[in-house]
Amino acid sequence: MSERCRVLICESHRKDGLLIVNFLQAKGFEVRLEENGKDGWEAFTSKPYDFCLLGVDLEEINGIELAEKIREKDGSIPIFFLSSKGEEEEILAGFNAGGDDYIVKPFFAEVLYAKMQAVLRRAKGKTETKASVYSLGRFILDTRKQILSLDGKVSKLTAREFALLLLFVSSEEMVLDRSMALKKIWGEDNISNTRTMDVYIAKLRKILQQDPSIELISIHGRGYQIVVNS
């Protein structure tokens, strides 16, 4: 790497945290490990990072709350949750807090690395692509800043929210093919990723509802479409 990717890891289980630190350092990342949410937040605000890996069961500030604080400060930094708990309610809470992925322990380190690389490639492609601005009803999507604005009010998007919305506005008639989106953004079309994408679609639908002329509808057997009513 010409410029090392800076990763902040907040993991209450020190042994697990050190294993991830050693693995990512061997891959060329610059890594900092904190063991509670308060120290994690102080670390995040002390210097810039490119990626966050957060445990859920952190002390003082839990992982969900920490992600929300990070999202308020930086709307685009990738955030992955790492947890031994895989209940649907907790996974949904992670995505609703601004997480880009939720990885259940135990997991293969190489799979974590591959997922991180996929998100970083998309982020790099976004910054290297010529700036484009799309109109969507009263919304303006700025692909360089990765923000969506409505009448001057800005909504920062997570990496995957941005990737999904960009697929919509880049496609003919703003139709999103479900299988294509799953493979392009999550790497594989399977039940787990389908449920995850449904969470992101619901979040986008909620954001877009701020403009009453916009509908995000489901197309049976195909995917989704954004419709702008005149």
Rank of each mutant, 00 (worst) to 15 (best):
A118Y: 01
V119W: 00
V119M: 05
V119H: 02
V119S: 05
L120E: 04
L120T: 02
L120A: 07
L120W: 01
R121L: 07
R122T: 04
A123N: 15
A123S: 15
A123I: 15
K124R: 15
K124P: 15
G125A: 11
G125N: 12
K126F: 07
T127H: 02
E128T: 13
E128K: 09
T129N: 13
T129G: 14
T129I: 04
K130G: 15
A131R: 05
S132L: 14
V133Y: 02
V133L: 05
V133D: 08
V133G: 03
Y134N: 09
Y134M: 11
S135V: 15
L136N: 06
R138M: 06
R138Y: 03
F139S: 11
F139R: 04
F139E: 06
F139Y: 05
F139D: 10
I140H: 01
L141G: 07
D142W: 01
D142V: 02
D142F: 01
T143P: 09
R144H: 08
R144L: 09
K145I: 05
K145Q: 08
Q146D: 06
L148H: 01
L148E: 00
S149H: 02
S149K: 04
L150Q: 07
D151A: 12
D151Y: 01
D151H: 12
G152D: 14
K153M: 13
V154C: 09
S155N: 10
S155L: 13
S155R: 06
S155M: 10
L157E: 02
T158Y: 03
T158V: 13
A159N: 13
A159H: 01
A159D: 11
R160W: 00
R160T: 11
E161K: 05
A163T: 10
A163W: 03
A163E: 14
A163S: 14
L164T: 06
L165I: 13
L165M: 10
L166G: 10
L166K: 09
L167T: 01
L167D: 00
F168Y: 05
F168M: 13
V169R: 07
S170W: 03
S170H: 04
S170M: 08
S171R: 02
S171P: 08
S171H: 03
S171D: 06
S171A: 13
S171V: 08
S171N: 11
E173P: 12
M174R: 15
M174D: 08
V175L: 09
L176F: 03
D177Y: 00
R178W: 00
R178Q: 10
S179G: 10
M180L: 12
A181Q: 03
A181N: 00
A181H: 00
L182T: 03
L182D: 04
L182Q: 02
L182A: 02
K183C: 07
K183Y: 00
